[in-house]
Nucleic acid binder design. Structure first.
Lengths: 359, 359
DNA sequence: TTGAAAGCGCTAACAT
DNA sequence: ATGTTAGCGCTTTCAA
């Protein structure tokens, strides 16, 4: 039965105009060439070799090689209702959402674990107000979702509600468990305990009455936990804690905030950065003001990213197991897909003190 | 016609045992609920509203909302033969392949551009010898590929040959054009010119007879270009250039290499890092040896990652437009998909000198 | 203004 | 040991 050109759908006509785009061979082409049925080809591709003659297998493999056949994951997914793909949504206002070493290592841990098991990671950076309209939410294309959220507690709850309504399992990183999210798992590190450890260490090393912490304008759950950890220890010991907000993705903004703070008050006893980048930047400002670290003031960061140890002095900080969190999240979600439910609602990894020489 | 349970495929049976996994509503469910055909639902979903009654549209939208229907991208892709997904393969030996700020910014630029246009980015970190067996290569699941390659020129050529044979368009980042790759585009920055600029700047600022450059064990095309740029200028002015190899992903390895170098010879006039991390780490080692920068020796890096400016002294380096490369790569590949061919074989972005105070 | 129907590439139960 | 067949969810042409 010959098709008249007009009967062809517009889409196919368009792609036909793309000369380079020779249509890739399908399982039918392989079957025809090998002189077998598509079912047989499928079995060879999927290594279901029970009771298949060696010669047939070889003929099929030859045909696959000759034609350069690559099975279409789309066809398979439609049939099996599995996509072997996990979506990762990083909800962040900054276009350089991937610039933070924490996120970066998290994603690396995720992909490495997933890749090794034949799963792909579909990455999406999403602006906070765009989550509802994002492809990941609007359309169904992954087996499960991973998210790192930002914004106020209220915002985050609304995102979690939105995700829950999708009816897809998801893992959130660095967020507190939410009971109403039934098919979700909360993977995080113990930021609070990490901050408590740092705070105690600081008070061991030096007498302190005043501390200041530089944090981001955008609220992140992990940062709130860190603040709360510091505050608990400091309150107990009657140490005051100022909070200074800045755009932590911009060194200029951190510098400006530090300069402004130093202009308006005498140096405190301790400067705390919400992460290492902030702490190191503040340390440079202190140097320019001839304020010695740790002589005059102490400085500490958070995350222990690789080069924090090579600052001068080496930064006192806490090691965030970001890569491990990513791996764990991947493992947890693959297990969920197998078992049909999350075995635990929450996983918490420890944060260890890294004693530098800046406190 | 009733199905006996036994007739159900194993896969469906298995997923049935996953109680939480209620099968998501399909376009048929929506059609049934709205009392229209699937064709009509499809038109509503895709906003093809020509000649559709307002009431029908509303009924359909209501049904969509009531059921929480999300169109399946798999079904659509199978029909349209488009996946709206770009694969990104980062061929790197290190499991923390995403840790490098350059790569990180590249990927951020890619996803941001793609996300905004409804495309997803499927991320895969791949070990050099595993490319041939990776899902991205073995199976067909994306419209096009992006790659950053590593290894010797010969290795890279073999990867490019492999990718060419897939019959899929691809973009490589930071690699030299290869004529035999017909349906490929080479997007890179002018590393060579960047190095030439740095070398000239160094020789303007100080008399130098000996330079040493710390580079990675694994060969990267961009690094080769940088070496070649430095060498050209230095050869011309009779400045010697030693190359020292180390594992640039490990600060311990950089430190060890620097210590070993200093133990075996007098300090040279200039230390060059293949990137900022290497340069900053070397600078710390110099400090510990009481070798002043830039008093005794000059130091320069490459990439100008955000915190290189806050080292002490601020690092002299060259700004790599990694984020822009990612955006450009995305734009180039989407255009290829539309036009049917790459309009240019190569795109080169400039690398600008960042004069710090370390030279 | 709407619907019927074909078919995208693949898998797996069942028949042969 | 291999083949037949139905159908996964969707889009689009053409008919009504």
């Amino acid at each position: 039965m010959a098709f008249s050109p007009d009967r062809q759908p517009a889409l196919l006509r368009r792609s036909e105009s793309q000369r380079q785009m020779a249509k890739p061979p399908t399982i039918h082409a392989v079957a025809a060439r090998a002189g077998v049925s598509t079912a047989t080809v499928s079995k060879v591709v999927n290594r279901i070799n029970v009771g298949m003659s060696e010669t047939t297998r070889q003929r099929v493999e030859e045909a696959i090689r000759d034609l350069g056949y690559r099975p279409s994951r789309v066809g398979r997914s439609l049939r099996t209702l599995r996509r072997s793909t996990i979506g990762m949504a990083i909800v962040d206002a900054s276009p350089s959402f991937l610039a933070d070493p924490f996120t970066t290592n998290l994603v690396a841990g995720l992909t490495n674990h997933l890749s090794a098991r034949g799963f792909g990671l579909l990455l999406h950076g999403i602006k906070p107000h765009e989550l509802r309209d994002s492809v990941l939410v609007r359309e169904s294309e992954v087996d499960a979702l991973c998210v790192t959220l930002s914004g106020s507690r209220r915002d985050r709850l609304s995102y979690i509600k939105l995700l829950t309504e999708l009816g897809q399992p998801f893992v959130t990183f660095q967020d507190q468990p939410v009971a109403s999210a039934k098919d979700a798992c909360f993977v995080r590190q113990d930021d609070r305990a990490g901050a408590v450890g740092l705070a105690r260490y600081i008070l061991e090393k030096r007498r302190a009455k005043r501390a200041v912490m530089f944090i981001s304008e955008l609220s992140w759950p992990a940062i709130e936990q860190r603040v709360s950890g510091f505050r608990d220890v400091f309150d107990d010991k009657r140490v005051s804690l100022d909070l200074v907000r800045c755009d932590e993705t911009s060194s200029a903004s951190i510098v400006a905030a530090a300069e402004a703070y130093l202009a308006r008050t005498a140096p405190p006893d301790v400067f705390i950065g919400q992460n290492d980048q902030v702490a190191l930047t503040v340390m440079q400002v202190l140097k320019r003001h001839n304020i010695r670290v740790p002589g005059d003031v102490g400085v500490c960061g958070f995350n222990a990213f690789p080069f924090s140890g090579f600052a001068d002095p080496p930064l006192t900080t806490a090691r965030s197991p970001a890569y491990e969190l990513g791996q764990l999240g991947a493992a947890v979600i693959l297990d969920r897909l197998e078992a049909g439910h999350f075995r635990k609602r929450e996983h918490v990894l420890a944060v260890d003190l890294v004693a530098g020489a800046s406190v």
